[in-house]
Design a protein around this nucleic acid. Structure first.
Lengths: 125, 125
DNA sequence: CTTGCCTCTGACGTCAACGTTAGGTTTTAG
DNA sequence: CTAAAACCTAACGTTGACGTCAGAGGCAAG
């Protein structure tokens, strides 16, 4: 049951996330590390998935603070009523944002259509 | 054919966008205004839709610069090959982002599920 | 006429997620 | 053994879309 540990640069290249970002995640309480005797960060292999999850949540527009509140639930596999409410609220926000993005995309498509087809009134342009 | 014009505060309340934001849009070349004799901004009613469009595009993650490049196409109803490429690129980016959001939302749903159901191993928590 | 709200132009403040630089230690390749 | 590469902390810089404040002029109501 040897735990394989990697250093920050390795984790960075494995996750395609910058070293600076990984340190920042730790600073925000999102990503734990043990330290070598000399003080260098060591990560176990599970950290890769953790970083991926963090990235996904950032990508969905969650803030560090919100993620920090939710990760303990993920780890403990238990949520309090408050955190459940929080999770649901974030999911709803994401759904809203998806809907907005679809509207914006369709709007862009309309613009592309309207400006792409040869315009009978503006052929001279 | 009287053109009804409103002042900035009216446009703000009609669009639910702050006065500061409207001035900022003008600064960025996104929203034009005429001026009264005393220098106050006057907007015609079409400005409401313009502001809505700007908000939608911001909401979709476009920058002021990008929007500024695209609005002339909307107005002229004509796009150059470059602007068409640009428009298509933004639409693709939005599609990508929608896909990412869906993944993140499903991930959140999983978390909600996993942390909400009574956990046989953790009932004591 | 004056009170009070609206508007104007600067111009500095904010916030988040890092980027970047500095100055120093540690690990690794040869 | 040595030099390059990777790591450390601390701290300042960046970016975009505004918020906010200061100081001054404009306008409808009473």
């Amino acid at each position: 049951m040897r735990e394989i540990t990697v250093r920050i640069g390795d984790l960075a290249s494995m996750t395609r996330v910058s070293v600076r970002a990984l340190r920042y995640y730790e600073e925000q309480g999102l990503l734990a590390s043990t330290r070598s005797e000399s003080g260098q960060r060591l990560y176990e292999n599970a950290a890769v998935n953790r970083v991926r999850l963090i990235q996904q949540l950032y990508g969905a527009g969650l803030s560090s603070k919100t993620i920090a509140e939710l990760l303990p639930c993920v780890d403990a596999k238990v949520s309090t009523p408050e955190s459940r409410e929080r999770l649901a609220a974030e999911r709803d926000r994401i759904n809203t944002q998806i809907a907005e993005l679809i509207i914006a995309r369709d709007r862009l498509d309309d613009i592309i259509d309207a400006t792409s087809r040869p315009n009978p009134e503006c052929d001279y342009v």
